[in-house]
């Protein structure tokens, strides 16, 4: 399938999803659906770096929340259209990824992972001490009832934007898999020293991956303040973002784009149901146990059961 065909198909599917949600015409569908879609973007973004190059980013909450707080700051400074705000948040988090990568990617991968883990703590410290965006007390954001230009409910609008981000993120992931860049990423993941010797500019490729991955995480986080209307550091930097975002690709499979998509749809939907019926702590425990269980028992994830990532994707990929 060509890139444009895929994009067209993805847009059609997204349109069908929106139409179906609108047909149900129940506010909860959009509220819950937004979270599921947000995780599709986060899981796909994480996998660009983690799944393709093998570098594990634990600082998801940092990238995600920094963009959310960029939105809060922008709202106070100069109200801009939300799509522009999303791009701004993506740019900030992309730069954060680039900076993190530049400082730690010359070292062994495990040092990068530890640094990202610490980075999330520091980003939170920074926001707690930043009174302009509410500091530790948090910030209220007013969600308009309707959008000015589309004349739809604002929650529908947020849902629609997140749906668009899903399409862009998935199309990007698929494009990378089928390009020279994706081959270079795979070489890095398998053996960095040999990749260098085979002419792959490993540092540059890793920086591209961290920046892209960070940017998509930021874009997923930028609309958050309008969704929750009240944002404080403990909820914005919640560890559950990191755990979910890592668990989803690892459960779905990291080798190809359907993995994070399947993992996110499955796990996020399950959580929406469990949170409603049981409790959020239990639901996070389930995710943690599933994560550990899957990486031990099914290292190639759900798509591995169907042979994706081992043969099917590769077959279609040769140029």
């Amino acid at each position: 399938m060509r890139g444009w065909t895929f994009l067209l198909l993805a847009v059609l599917v997204a349109g069908a999803v929106y139409a179906a949600a609108a047909a149900v015409n129940n506010g909860y569908v959009f509220f819950a659906g937004y979270v599921v879609l947000q995780y599709v973007v986060l899981a796909t973004a994480w996998n660009l770096l983690g799944g393709y190059t093998g570098y594990v980013n634990f600082g998801i909450a940092g990238f995600f929340a920094l963009a959310a707080y960029t939105t809060v700051a922008l709202e106070k400074l100069a109200p801009l259209p939300l799509p522009v705000v999303i791009l701004a948040g993506g740019a900030i988090s992309g730069l954060l990824g680039l900076g993190m990568g530049y400082l730690t990617l010359r070292l062994r991968g495990v040092f990068f992972s530890i640094a990202t883990l610490a980075m999330a703590v520091v980003a939170q410290t920074f926001v707690v001490n930043w009174n302009f965006v509410g500091g530790s007390a948090g910030a209220f954001v007013i969600r308009p009832q309707f959008t000015a230009w589309l004349r739809i409910d604002y929650i529908h609008y947020l849902f629609l934007l997140m749906l668009g981000l899903c399409v862009i993120a998935l199309a990007t992931a698929r494009l990378i898999e089928r390009s020279r860049l994706g081959d270079g990423f795979a070489a890095i993941r398998d053996d960095e020293l040999a990749a260098e010797a085979a002419g792959v500019p490993t540092l540059r490729l890793k920086l591209i991956a961290t920046a892209l991955s960070g940017a998509f995480m930021g874009m997923a986080g930028a609309p958050l303040p309008y969704y929750v209307t009240y944002l404080d550091p403990p909820s914005a930097f919640s560890l559950s973002y990191a755990v979910n975002t890592i668990a989803m690709p690892l459960i779905g499979g990291t080798a190809a784009w359907p993995g994070p998509l399947i993992g996110a749809l499955l796990l996020a939907t399950l959580q929406q149901l469990v949170t409603v019926t049981i409790s959020s702590a239990v639901n996070l425990l389930i995710v943690g146990l599933m994560l550990v269980g899957f990486i031990i028992i099914a290292p190639r994830g759900i798509i591995g059961w169907f042979g994706i990532g081992a043969g099917l994707v590769r077959k279609g990929k040769r140029r």
Binding site: D183, G184, D191, A194, A195, A197, G199, A255, R314
Partner: peptide, 27 residues
């Protein structure tokens, strides 16, 4: 200036042909 490694270091998730494709694409 190319070198081969004393202990072979193939890209293990790529096929044999794809292993050769990397230097063709990148060099």
């Amino acid at each position: 200036l190319a070198r081969s490694f004393q202990l072979p270091r193939p890209f293990r998730s790529l096929t044999v042909a794809e292993n050769l494709q990397i230097p063709i694409e990148y060099v």
